[in-house]
Design a protein around this nucleic acid. Sequence first.
DNA 1: GGTGTAATCAGGAGCACCTTGCAATTGGGT
DNA 2: ACCCAATTGCAAGGTGCTCCTGATTACACC
Lengths: 153, 153
Amino acid sequence: MTHAPDVPKLIVNEPGEAIRALRASGLRLSTARRLLIEALFAADGPVSAQHLIQTLSLEESSVYRNLEVLERHGLTRHVHLGHGPGLYALVGRDEGEYLYCEHCGKVTQLSPEQLDPVRDHIQEHFGHTARFTHFAIVGLCEGCAPEGPTGSR
Amino acid sequence: MTHAPDVPKLIVNEPGEAIRALRASGLRLSTARRLLIEALFAADGPVSAQHLIQTLSLEESSVYRNLEVLERHGLTRHVHLGHGPGLYALVGRDEGEYLYCEHCGKVTQLSPEQLDPVRDHIQEHFGHTARFTHFAIVGLCEGCAPEGPTGSR
DNA sequence: GGTGTAATCAGGAGCACCTTGCAATTGGGT
DNA sequence: ACCCAATTGCAAGGTGCTCCTGATTACACC
């Protein structure tokens, strides 16, 4: 019983849906916001703010400000793999949780359900509702683990 | 089978043991290092670099540099709860993994074994050797979870 | 289509948390 | 006590944001 069964699952199939959600939150659609939403929609996987700033030629402050506003309204989120900057994604488009190999940097994306048993265990034993969407699960991938084959880089 | 059964478990019962380990790594015992080790030994739970800098009146760069050297030699580690600075601890003294409530900020320390079932599950299903010592497990504590009692702050 | 005005933006300064470079100092082996 | 690589203190630099302020813009209303 990790999710309330009645909460509708938002899935964004085109940027327009995110834009409607934005309007529904009483936010205006500025050029910066449209570009951000389109770029996040088109991206495969979460991207850094710097990447967005450069590829979209947007003001640094505008990007951070909007990503924060959008996140406050539940439209975007950001995740941290190891160290390094936050990576931003469109909620409803990228719902993944990540395994991050701290040795070779490999990132494995999991669908939300795949960690449900883990969440359930933590809920049952510690009364804590865990989400792995903000911090990746850090560790070693198969190739880099001590007893695995040659720990590559 | 999360840990190799033959790896001796380092437990530090007094600062002198960490200092011996430091010497065994070919490192010198400078005043800064002694103070850091003593402070980390005395602390209950991981502390920020700023805290160490202020309470020990040490140079900022010296603290960060030494914490990094000590970490590279396996003597200290650092953990991130939500956002905010890294928190440093003596390996062998504080082996905890943490649950962090993103709503009220509550921190729950777990002993390493308590997450073994979770690690085993992730290992089995995804071939990933997870460690929760670098990033806390973020989520909501019992009091702050949606269907729990009044979500306090 | 024009107008008013609150939301949003651009640009720049500022901040937290570290990191780096380099000359001066020091721990510890001999 | 001497030596010299390891370590430090200081100052500057870097990254990833965050905040401020006056100019601009989206959009509800006419």
